[in-house]
Amino acid sequence: MINLAPHNKLGLIIDSPLIAGSGAAGYGAAWPPGLHAEDFGLIITAPISATPRKGKAQPRLAEIPAGFLLETGDHNPGLRRVLASHVKTWRKLKTPVALSLVGGEPGDRAWMAAHLEDVEDVIAGVELPIPETVNLGEAGALIAAVRRVTPLPILARLPLTRAAYLAKTCVVAGADALIVGAPPPAAYPVDGDWVEAPLGGPIVLPFTLRALRQLRDMSLDAPVIAAGGVQTLDDALLCLELGAMAVQIRSLAWRDPAAAHRLALNIRSFMDAEDN
């Protein structure tokens, strides 16, 4: 068992170091064939905003060598409808669920976190994606505003290229764990238009490894979760060796659910062998 929020009285105990990253299974119900909630120690939902968002118009997807760019514009039906539609599903799952809260202003996330009071028994934590462009003060304010209104474990998702810069501030402001992190944005042409979006797929792994190496030397008092580009058991073990307590996948679940299921089995076997 791994506790991703050791300093939070609620804790965030997971039974596998493999996490379904934000949106890998939508809101916890869009499972590809052969992949199940039980394959993961934690499920993080697709992004949820305070009010419904229509998201970005097409094109949303561009293929690049060894990966893709995907910009959905945080398309989602808003917090109230997500809770109304999915709390029953989350209650039935044996795997804990964390909600990914996004918003234009720090106040949006705090408002959403405050509205989770009635479902705190169903939700294991909240993920807060830290925007690429924030400074230290803004990142700290964003985390602190949510910390003030909810006891739930906070997982701060840091931009991979700025993780070392933002990490300590986020922990001091109240983050229980750091997700490393959000891939760098890029641009690619599609059918005479452009997709500007974060990278996805195996091309992201070197960015994740660099950020993990930077954080390893910082003596942070918070667990680190690796996210970005993990496709194989070797990738996952590399992240764990670099100090990550858990590893997220997303594009692997979309592209090759059978391989994701094999990874889930293999990482459990590996951890069991390590324990014995």
């Binding site: 869009a30 998201g55 959905t72 398309h75 592209r255």
Partner: peptide, 21 residues
């Protein structure tokens, strides 16, 4: 259109159709 996941999780294939996205 080209699909990424085919299950609705990735949201890459959302288009304006049937009165909504």
């Amino acid at each position: 259109m080209n699909f990424l996941c085919g299950t609705g999780a990735c949201q890459a294939c959302a288009v304006d159709i049937a009165g909504g996205r």
